[in-house]
């Protein structure tokens, strides 16, 4: 059974809070729920961005997702 939207959101946020590096690939979130389709996970991750619970980090060629407080902290120290 795939997780509900809210459960999936929490799992994604937890992963973003605890990952070794703040920037995560969308694929890293697939593991949050192996039963959810990649497109579903992308949609939920983007909803989290709109809610302000995740943030994009882009190199220009690759876009990653990050926990806002962690990434803003890292950006400050760059």
């Amino acid at each position: 059974m795939p997780l509900s939207d809210d459960e999936l959101k929490d799992a994604i946020c937890e992963k973003a809070a605890k990952s070794p590096k703040p920037q995560l690939y969308i694929k890293d979130f697939y593991k949050c729920d192996p039963d959810s389709k990649p497109r579903k996970i992308k949609n939920v991750a983007n909803e989290l961005v709109r809610e302000g619970r995740l943030m994009f980090w882009s190199s220009g060629s690759t876009t990653m997702y990050a926990d806002p407080s962690r990434i803003q902290n890292e950006e400050k120290n760059r």
Binding site: N46, V49, R50, M55, F56, W57, S58, S59, G60, T63, A66, I71, Q72, E75, R78
Partner: peptide
């Protein structure tokens, strides 16, 4: 310096931080 969190709200593309 390449990359960063810059962008316009809700968009994950279109802006390249430098």
């Amino acid at each position: 310096k390449h990359g960063g969190i810059v962008g316009v709200f809700g968009y994950g593309g279109g802006i390249v931080g430098r």
